[in-house]
Design a protein around this nucleic acid. Structure first.
Lengths: 190, 190
DNA sequence: TCCTTTTGTCAACATTTGTTGACTTTTCTC
DNA sequence: GAGAAAAGTCAACAAATGTTGACAAAAGGA
């Protein structure tokens, strides 16, 4: 046990299975409506294992909700297209089936889960706000970040959580153009 | 029992008390986190009465969620200020402590409650879309409604549900100007 | 006052929830 | 193969959930 085996240990495989199932179910039904037994069933394991591996439902949720927006570096963004760039990035974040699917998880539960809500707040404060700082008067950065958040999270809410038909029907290019223009205006400042 | 008494019957007063308590708690904690016993305690009555008066938790929620946006008539809106007008109306709808506080209730639960989600969809399809129909090409009305919904609901989500500090900090006039301009552009069509 | 209807109280139900501990099976090392 | 550690199984717990029915108090009409 001094050296880690090259092949993934069985325990890590089940741990990953639990995490994947949890991510999917939390993102689909939210925190309250997803039970330990549901997650266990989806991962084809015993409910007790979920607790054994993650301690509690809260800790499992926290683990799944802990991720990174992975925004491009401030310097590498063309200030003339921040809006479009940001929107494109978030679109990829929502539609990617990667392990980074934490954003759907968060937004689905944030309305009735304080932890998820404060996590979203942290994400925007720590990762979006810095990008906006250099794009306009620093004094208004917080206000600009708020407006950007209202539009980006609104798009995510209506398209991926509520799935309002008119918003779901929007094609990628329209979103990039229309919403991109809005975010651009918010980001630069009026 | 042929005629209704002029004064409110005692039963109607408790019924109203339950409804008020339910509205407040549903709006504050969402559907799943609000228990029948919580509502009963807030209304200072017995939990069984909640069921007696409303049949079930679902039906009570449906009752509380049944309301009207009360948008101004299409004809009475100045097309040059639709955006500002709409935003102002929704702001009032959110901040008003009136009996029409159904909108916070809906949005707080919509993420994990299918009924609430489809109710929101109905509201926009039946009340917002008609307003936009005459403001631009009818063929794009649905798309414009989707964009408007993404911004308005996004504002509501971040300001009243998630309470993101930068969005909460926005003063009324800034919101009317900035978000109003966005909604205006969406509503008219690009 | 008597009787009926309304309004409210109480205890209990079945189910589901997250979580735990005792136990067995598998896996790996010596 | 023996023994130890890890991984998995099973049954049960306490608490909370929505809901129900039997019963008591109050109100209103005759």
């Amino acid at each position: 046990m001094v050296d880690k085996p090259l092949k993934m240990k069985k325990s890590e495989r089940t741990r990953a299975a639990i995490e994947a199932a949890a991510r999917r179910l939390f993102a689909e039904h939210g925190y309250e409506r997803t039970g330990i037994r549901d997650i266990a069933a989806a991962a084809a394991i015993d409910p007790a294992m979920v607790i054994r591996y993650f301690g509690s439902k809260d800790r499992l949720f926290a683990e799944v909700a802990d991720f990174d927006l992975g925004l491009p570096d401030v310097a590498s963004i063309d200030p003339a297209h921040v809006g479009r760039t940001l929107v494109a990035h978030f679109l990829a974040l929502w539609e990617g089936d990667s392990a980074n699917g934490g954003l759907p998880v968060l937004l689905r539960s944030a309305a009735s889960n304080e932890f998820a809500a404060s996590r979203i707040q942290q994400l925007f404060a720590a990762q979006v706000l810095p990008v906006l700082l250099s794009l306009g008067p620093p004094a208004t950065a917080s206000q600009r970040a708020g407006l950007v958040a209202s539009q980006i999270l609104g798009l995510a809410l209506t398209r991926y959580v509520l799935a309002l038909p008119p918003v779901v029907a929007l094609d990628r290019e329209t979103i990039l153009a229309e919403v991109g223009a809005t975010v651009q205006r918010y980001a630069i400042g009026g």
